[in-house]
């Protein structure tokens, strides 16, 4: 049993509520209409392409192609993170790339092998959608973590410098900024885990139920995926900050001014 298909004509109907939104936005002078239209168009186009190439990825199901595809997703994610954090791409790319790749590989392979118990760890059916979900959720937390960390130090540079003189160690001087950034980055997923099922039904579970899974199977998947989203966010944020410190500071432990 699969989900009821949506016709292309019906999908056009899904756009109808955009009309009052665009009108209200125009009347309130929110200057959002251009951004709304671009975002909707990009979402539709990007997902349209995903539909096309996922069809072939699932059809071929070649491990190296699947791995390559996920690597490409990580690279795109790195670009988005650094753009949103307003940090220099060339300086921080290696740090962000490895801080995503390491927890991602460990979490995803563990999830596929131990939790789901599949033999082909790179099976497109599991590797790509679960990988995409983990990456997508990791993205936001790393953006919050990195931008909070570097903007915090920039804003309170005197406090950081003073701490350097008192603590004898760069890591100890950075500790409060690090703590603050990790907490800010992790809080949304903690709140999300605490309210899931009460406030909203998660997308993966809804998708599985629509796809024909019995609710208990969907719920078990959802619990497992939420835990792994939390793990990858936690380690992703910590590693991204730790790996980036080497590039973000000069030999005198000062925050480099040309990293933003």
């Amino acid at each position: 049993m699969g989900a009821q298909d949506i016709s292309w004509f019906s999908l056009v109907w899904a756009l109808c509520f955009l009309i009052p939104i665009l009108w209200i936005s125009f009347k309130l002078e929110l200057a959002l209409n251009r951004a709304i239209l671009i975002s909707v168009a990009r979402m539709a186009l990007q997902l349209g392409f995903v539909g096309i190439y996922l069809k072939y990825l699932f059809l071929w199901n070649l491990p190296w192609v699947n791995a390559l595809y996920v690597l490409l997703m990580i690279c795109v994610a790195c670009g988005s993170i650094l753009k949103a954090s307003q940090l220099k791409f060339t300086v921080f790319l290696p740090a962000v790339f490895f801080s995503m790749l390491i927890p991602f590989c460990i979490c995803l392979l563990f999830f596929n092998r131990v939790i789901i118990g599949i033999d082909n760890l790179l099976d497109a059916k599991y590797f790509i959608p679960i990988g995409g979900m983990l990456l997508g959720n990791c993205l936001q937390s790393i953006i919050i973590g990195l931008s909070r960390f570097y903007s915090g130090i920039k804003k309170e540079e005197k406090v950081y410098q003073y701490a350097l003189t008192l603590y004898q160690s760069r890591l100890l001087a950075l500790k409060p900024f690090f703590k603050d950034s990790v907490i800010a980055a992790i809080n949304p997923i903690l709140a999300s885990m605490a309210t899931i099922g009460l406030v909203a039904l998660p997308g993966m579970m809804t998708g599985q139920i629509l796809g024909g899974s019995v609710p208990m199977v969907a719920i078990k998947y959802q619990i497992a995926i939420m835990l792994f989203i939390f793990y990858i966010q936690f380690f992703g944020v910590i590693l991204s900050i730790l790996f980036s410190i080497r590039s973000g500071f000069d030999p005198f432990d000062m925050l480099k001014q040309d990293i933003f």
Binding site: V159, Q161, Y162, A163, L164, T165, Q168, P176
Partner: peptide, 15 residues
């Protein structure tokens, strides 16, 4: 060198 110096900044920029 920093270990040898006690610095009191103008605004005492403690956390």
């Amino acid at each position: 060198i920093r270990q040898k110096i006690f610095y009191l900044s103008q605004d005492v920029d403690l956390r």
